[in-house]
Design a protein around this nucleic acid. Structure first.
Lengths: 157, 157
DNA sequence: GGTCTTTGTAAGTTATACTAACAATCTTAT
DNA sequence: ATAAGATTGTTAGTATAACTTACAAAGACC
């Protein structure tokens, strides 16, 4: 994770000339990538003091919402493969935020559950996310937010 | 902030505190990340035979649109820092798709330009992007595409 | 039982993004 | 004009993430 102190804002500020991107601006994928990058950077700043990445928070949140979930369940909900999920669960386990234990219903699976520190970390993360979402939503009306979510969902569903 | 809970309707069964910001699916950032992941994955499949990533294509395209552009120019337009831009330009140079040469107007800068193989690679990439964009746009009307681009631009601009 | 599938794990590769430090060059203030 | 400061490219090092391949253990199905 890009650890950082709280010095400066975004490393590549929007300066004159940045909007001159030519015909590439008509490519939807290009805008999704730029928007994702902007959100990612702001997220990282907002979460610098919590030592958690987007993926880690999402995984933590999913485990909280679905006690005893298996890694494959997290992977499916986050559209990741098993190996990537492993890496993220490993990091969360190393931080002491969740525990693996063999599932009783299916010996192949590991049931994931939050620890108390994990619950506290998630609570703090949710407060930070509120800030982050506020930053993100501040440029839209409520109706536009709903519309944006609906359009994005059509891409990933 | 009057009446806003309606759009974030779905109730969380377990915890209902003042700090509870609802289910993860109501978080805009989560949808942007999932949509970006879906687009990234499809892009990678579409481009498997071309040995080019999203970033590399974008950089190639920008250099084609702006001959003699400096690395810092590419960085600003793609919202990347100088070090990340270096890595991408290095890869494109290693593939023989572009050349660096000292800028005459500013000795600190490197003027970037495509080679002939670079131009051919970009032409092929643009054809693949048409396919990719078709896949992406197929779930929207033209009007929705325009709306989506407009909303996304508000995030990264 | 035997075979196929699913799940977790491990190892290794690639791409991206960031920091910090440095040299060369340009810009600006005195 | 020169000193001080800012910009640009570069290198080195770190962290995350996504992927592949391979393997073992357990479940599903015939």
């Amino acid at each position: 994770m890009p650890r950082q102190k709280e010095t400066i804002a975004i490393t590549t500020p929007h300066v004159a000339g940045a909007e001159d991107i030519g015909e590439i601006r008509n490519i939807v994928g290009f805008h999704i990538r730029l928007a994702h990058g902007a959100v990612y950077r702001h997220f990282t700043e907002t979460f610098a003091h919590l030592d958690l990445t987007q993926k880690q928070v999402s995984a933590l949140w999913l485990v909280a919402d679905h006690p005893d979930i298996a890694q494959i369940g997290v992977a499916q909900r986050m559209r990741m493969d098993r190996a990537t999920t492993m890496a993220i669960v490993n990091r969360l386990e190393a931080k002491g935020y969740l525990v693996r234990r063999k599932s009783r219903s299916d010996g192949r699976k590991q049931a994931l559950n939050l620890t108390d520190p994990g619950r506290r970390a998630l609570a703090a993360a949710k407060r930070a996310i509120q800030q982050h979402e506020q930053w993100l939503k501040s440029r839209f009306t409520e109706q536009e937010v709903a519309r944006l979510i609906e359009l994005l969902a059509r891409i990933h569903e």
